[in-house]
Structure formats: structure tokens, C-alpha cells
Write a protein that binds this DNA or RNA. Structure first.
Lengths: 207, 207
DNA sequence: AGTTTTCGAAACGAGACCGTTGCGTATCGT
DNA sequence: ACGATACGCAACGGTCTCGTTTCGAAAACT
């Protein structure tokens, strides 16, 4: 926690309600696409229905507020079903897709993709806390597939991850009323990736 | 062009040098990750070594300036070599990779990924002008591959595009001193995609 | 009761940009 | 030469946000 040292429990205790409202307002705004640079303490206070004093009393600066807020976002990746690699990959990609429709979860990609250059420190902490655990879970699915023989033994796991995750992020980021994410995108991605693009007459055409 | 009506050629002509400096400054700042919202005419003028008047004389507002500046970015996709699909795909992805190292070209992805929600009009014009032509060129490569029999006849071309483009964008956006884009990423992406992840004992293991 | 701390609200001076205007100079056509 | 227009520069009044301070009320403690 980067919260300012809280004083001894002498006088009136800090309102948890206010704290939650502040964090919620911060996450909502970031999810809506507000840049960290643009995010003003004043706007957060108004949105949270809270005095600016209440924010400054708890966080020394904007970056600390953002980091603490993002830290509450640690969504666990579900344990994969484990029936086969295909099902696990589809499950994870489907989680990404469904999460992207909720405003709150867009914080993750917005921060990861937009703020790396300008707030390297924030980005580094966020990457360790939120991004890497998810990448690792995904990586394990592929590794397990190689181990069980479902996937090629010489599969380039990192490149494979980039293809699947990159494609899904690409769609969810570009999505909007005019360009919706297809409902079955996860399935289609995984099947195309597993099968390969090339036409191979020696192989059974029916997958 | 959204430039303000230029007056008759009576007095002193407008300086092309100034105009270029303005556009350059605009593109540089966007390439560095400055949001369109954050981009101030004042900052552009200072960076270009130009009076604000000179900018306001040519463009009615910030959005027009940005659109005109971006319009100068129409990099042509090279005609594909045409030897085979693999070579063409690698060539296009390699163009994306090498372009991404130049600050100027980062404007394209920065605008496409960050500003769609907040400047839908700007995004729409930019998409038609810059993005779609490139997507179409890429799409043609895949279609040609299907036609020649190099790729599966039932290949999901849109999903295939997302996988390759998404993966490359994912890497170039995330790239930085700590996470460089591998030199051979284009080759590795294309080969994994063509081959497929799945281990298929009926097929020759050597690609 | 008395003390301490937090609460939301309001106001502060400082600074950034806004879009506009005036200034003196430079550069073109006539 | 002369009028017209563009140039860079500086200043204008106005709005917004900054981070800080002050205020009276509220809510816990001894």
C-alpha cells in the first residue's frame, strides 16, 4: 500500500464508504478512457461525492491513488477446466472477451497500452501485479499442452501467446458500436491457431 | 483538405516552411503519446517555432489540424513480392515492425487505439484514410493465398488477419527498452500461424 | 464533557491554455 | 512605391485545474 500513514485511532475514524467511492470513481474514469495525465483529483472528488481534502489526506499524489485503485482489480484467472488445451485456451480468451464489455475491466488494457511510456513506474508496478500473473496462467496452459503432446513439442510458446492474446486485445480495443466483437471469436481464434493456415493435402481436411 | 480557405495570391504568400513545421510538431507530439485532448495549440506553436496566429489562420480548430497532419502519413504498403504467401505476409508484418521504431509512425497506432472513443469523427476519417487501405492490402494477400491453394479454402480470413496484425501490434505497443520487439518476430509469427499449434503425427514434423 | 480527528464545502493564489488582438517587420503582386 | 497579406511575438480577459487552507459540523475516543 502506498496510502499515507494513518494516524492513531484517536478521533473520528476515516470513512470506508468515502474511500470506496474514491477508488470506484478513479477506476470508472480510467475505464472510460481518461488518461492518467488527464485524471484530475478534482474530477475524482466530484464524481465520488467527496471533498478533495479527503483524497489528499489518504494519498500523497495522483499516481499513488491510481496504483492503489488498480491494485483492487486483481481478478483471478479461473483454474482451467483441464479437459484439453483447446477448451482451456477458449476459456481464457472468453474471459478476456466478456471482461472487456464491463467498463471497469477496461482499466487494465487502457493502462497497459497507453500509459507505459509516460508513467513507467506505474506501469511496472501494474505489470507485476496484474498483467504478469495472467500471462503466466496462459503460458502454463500452452506448456501443459506441449507436455501432454497435444501441441507441437517445438511450439514457440511466447509467439503463440502473442497471437492469441494480441488478436483478442486487438478486437476488444477496436470494438465499439460499429465494430462489435464476434460472440464466437474465442473459438474461431483457437481453432484457426491450432489448425494452421496452410492447406495441407496430406492431412485430413475435416478438423 | 479541411484547411481554411486560402486567400487570393495578393500579399505575402504563406510560408510552406511554417506549415511543415506545424504539421511535424503535431505528429511528433502525437507519436510521443500526447492525447488529442492534451495537445494544445500553444504547445504545437512553441515546438514548431511559430506564432499561434499562424496556426489559427490555417486551421479552424484542433481536430482539423490533427486530421490534416495525419493525412500526410499515408505510407503506401509496398506491392507484395508475390513469390508466395509466406513471403508476402512476412514482408507486410516486417513493414509494421520497422515502422514502429520511428516515432512518427507511432501516431498511427496511438490514434487508432486511443482516440476512437473520444473523437469518433476523427477516428472515422483516419480509419478510412490510413487504416482500411492497409487492412485491405493485407486481406488481399490472404485471399490470394486461398486462391492459389497455398492456404486452406475454408480459412477464416478476418480471424487470420487479427491474429497476425494483433500479435504484431501487441508487441510494438508493449515494446520499450525493457521489452524489445524480437528482430525475427515477423518470421516466427507467420511460420507458427501457417503451421498451426497442434501436434499432428500424421503430418511430417519438419516444416 | 472535552479532545481529537475526519467529514464535505468553499475559497485561495498560481499557473496553463484558450481564442483574439495589436504590433512592427517581411515578402509578395501591381 | 504601395497596398495587401503573412510572419513571429506579446499581451489581453476568461476559464479551468492545481494543491492548500479554512470553516463548522460530525463522530469517535478518554
Amino acid at each position: 500500500m502506498t496510502t499515507i500513514q494513518e494516524s492513531a485511532g484517536r478521533g473520528r475514524p476515516r470513512s470506508e464508504r468515502a474511500e470506496k467511492a474514491i477508488v470506484d470513481a478513479t477506476l470508472d474514469m480510467i475505464g472510460e478512457g481518461v488518461t492518467v495525465s488527464e485524471l484530475s483529483i478534482e474530477a475524482v472528488a466530484n464524481r465520488a461525492g467527496v471533498g478533495k481534502t479527503t483524497i489528499y489526506r489518504r494519498w500523497a499524489n495522483k499516481e499513488d491513488l491510481v496504483v492503489d485503485s488498480l491494485a483492487t482489480l486483481r481478478l483471478p484467472m479461473p483454474e482451467p477446466g483441464g479437459t484439453d488445451v483447446r477448451a482451456d485456451l477458449i476459456e481464457y480468451l472468453e474471459v478476456m472477451r466478456s471482461e472487456s464489455s464491463e467498463l471497469r475491466n477496461r482499466c487494465i488494457t487502457n493502462i497497459a497500452l497507453n500509459e507505459a511510456d509516460r508513467f513507467p513506474d506505474l506501469y511496472r508496478r501494474f505489470r507485476e501485479l496484474v498483467i504478469e500473473p495472467r500471462r503466466e496462467a496462459f503460458r502454463q496452459v500452452l506448456r501443459r499442452g506441449v507436455a501432454t503432446g497435444e501441441l507441437r513439442p517445438d511450439l514457440d510458446v511466447e509467439v503463440a501467446m502473442s497471437m492469441l492474446i494480441g488478436a483478442m486485445l486487438f478486437h476488444t480495443k477496436m470494438s465499439g458500436p460499429a465494430y462489435p466483437v464476434p460472440d464466437d471469436l474465442a473459438v474461431r481464434l483457437v481453432d484457426e491457431a491450432l489448425r494452421g493456415f496452410r492447406y495441407d493435402v496430406t492431412r485430413n481436411v475435416a478438423s
